[in-house]
């Protein structure tokens, strides 16, 4: 690890991570790794570089490999660049029964990318996800922190058209 912890991240990011560290016993800084990865990912346009993971390891006094393990295990971390807006469409059973295939098809056609792809302008990434726990509003998707439920192709259009 190069330099001191004060050289890692911006003061704002450090303060946010420190708030999470404070929740756990002093000898368990590692408990904040999931929050720290999310915070630095959000500040990095939605993905984690190797350098950022190493910085998180340095900040939390963890072995880098332990941070990579976490970053590769959980589905919400991205290890490659993604679009400005990550569209996560649920296709699990309740959504499938209610036409999530049509929603995926519509999005693929509208954006010109397949599931897992990013539009050439870097604006959207389209991702298939597992059950997001909103089956009463199936079919549904998540963009950023927001859930969108009871989707139709028309509703999807109006949501995407409002995003900058």
């Amino acid at each position: 690890m190069a330099g001191s912890k004060e050289q890692l991240f911006t003061p704002e990011i450090r303060a946010e991570i420190d708030q999470w560290i404070a929740k756990y016993p002093a000898e368990w800084k590692q408990s904040a790794v999931m929050a720290a990865l999310r915070i630095v990912q959000d500040a990095n346009g939605g993905w984690l570089s190797r350098e950022l993971m190493d910085d998180v390891a340095g900040y939390l006094e963890m072995a880098p490999i332990a941070v990579y393990e976490v970053a590769t295990f959980y589905s919400m971390y991205e290890l490659k660049p993604v679009g400005k807006h990550k569209i996560c469409v649920c296709t699990n059973v309740s959504c499938m029964i209610n036409g999530s295939d049509n929603i995926v098809g519509h999005l693929e056609k509208k954006l010109g990318v397949a599931l897992g792809g990013t539009t050439s302008d870097g604006k959207f990434t389209l991702k298939e996800v597992e059950c997001l726990g909103a089956c009463g509003g199936a079919p549904m998707m998540q963009i950023g922190k927001q859930y969108y439920e009871n989707l139709t192709p028309e509703i999807v259009d109006s949501i995407l058209d409002r995003l900058e």
């Binding site: 699990n92 059973v93 309740s94 597992e130 059950c131 726990g133 089956c135 009463g136």
Partner: peptide, 11 residues
């Protein structure tokens, strides 16, 4: 950590 497909009560 509500994730069992079909479940959305804890939310």
């Amino acid at each position: 950590d509500e994730g069992e497909p079909g479940t959305f009560k804890d939310r």
